[in-house]
Design a protein around this nucleic acid. Structure first.
Lengths: 163, 163
DNA sequence: ATAAAATTGGCAGAAAATGCCAATGAAGAA
DNA sequence: TTCTTCATTGGCATTTTCTGCCAATTTTAT
């Protein structure tokens, strides 16, 4: 049972849990117009199917002393498979890197880096990032203001695949 | 009581809830070596203090039919306060935009956009983004591979402020 | 229309959440 | 150091929630 198509109730469940992952099953059931039993069963099913990958608390970055977010574009020496792989593995292990994508365009990788302040970023850049295997160029873009963050995925497909 | 400094237990609570926001209070208490009562009190306190901004389910983007992530750099006509404000407000209202930052560097804003596929992105770009107030230039970087996502914030300060 | 299959709602026992209070531990004053 | 004060803890009792099971209902296919 790999891909049982989502119905309207599943989508409402996902939307609700995106918004508030700590809803009790009773509240959730009420919100999607179902009784608790089948509601819980659907949630478990969505988890088992891998559609729900986890539940996370969203923290205030400034509040925990991580006041600086930087988007870092990284070029790796000519995609030499080996270089790129080594870079990938190194990056997932770095706690300061909260997300990393291989992207098209000017840079090869785009990282989101979270640190306490400029001094910490300098340390991270010169002491860690620049020493990673295969790195040939780095462009740092500092987040000056966060306009939107952790927005929910738009589940009411505005014209997507399927059905 | 705005900013009661975090102690080691608070930090462990935050770390645990970042990893799994659906831990029961009993499990959480055990994990941080506290009995359930004070543990719950601390969690409530962290919520009230704004350090915990919410709890969210992390979904599988492909699984919900949103297979394409694009990082979009946007230039706004010369930061004309008015233009930038209008742009900000427009952007937070767009469901396809899951994050948006004002950044230093080549672009003024960096958006993360999630859509079903290239066709949907084309529609979004020409039908929505390019029509926003003050937009003067757009650079689209497509995510080819996700190396790391939703990484936890590094709470064991690797040399940050304070203390 | 009939039959098979999946899904639902309710119930009961087990577990968790939550508010309260006395006891413990830490910080400061004398 | 010793005493006092204040914050925090742990345990208890009540309420709420979770969770597995079964009969009833709805849906799908023939």
């Amino acid at each position: 049972m790999p891909n049982t198509r989502l119905d309207a109730i599943d989508r409402r469940i996902l939307a609700a849990l995106q918004r508030d992952a700590r809803l009790s099953n009773v509240q959730l059931a009420e919100e999607v117009n179902l009784s608790p039993s089948p509601c819980l069963r659907r949630v478990r099913q969505l988890e088992a199917a891998g559609l729900i990958r986890g539940y996370h608390a969203e923290l205030d970055r400034g509040g925990v002393g991580l006041g600086l977010t930087v988007f870092v574009g990284v070029k790796v020496e000519r995609h030499h498979e080996a270089e790129a792989n080594a870079f990938r593995e190194a990056v997932v292990a770095l706690p300061e890197v909260v997300s990393a994508h291989l992207v098209s365009g000017e840079s090869d990788f785009l990282l989101q880096v979270v640190v306490a302040d400029l001094a910490a970023y300098e340390r991270f850049l010169t002491g860690t990032l620049l020493r990673l295997p295969g790195v040939s160029d780095i462009r740092s873009n500092f987040a000056i203001q966060t306009v939107k963050e952790h927005g929910p995925l738009p589940l009411t497909r505005p014209g997507g695949e399927g059905r």
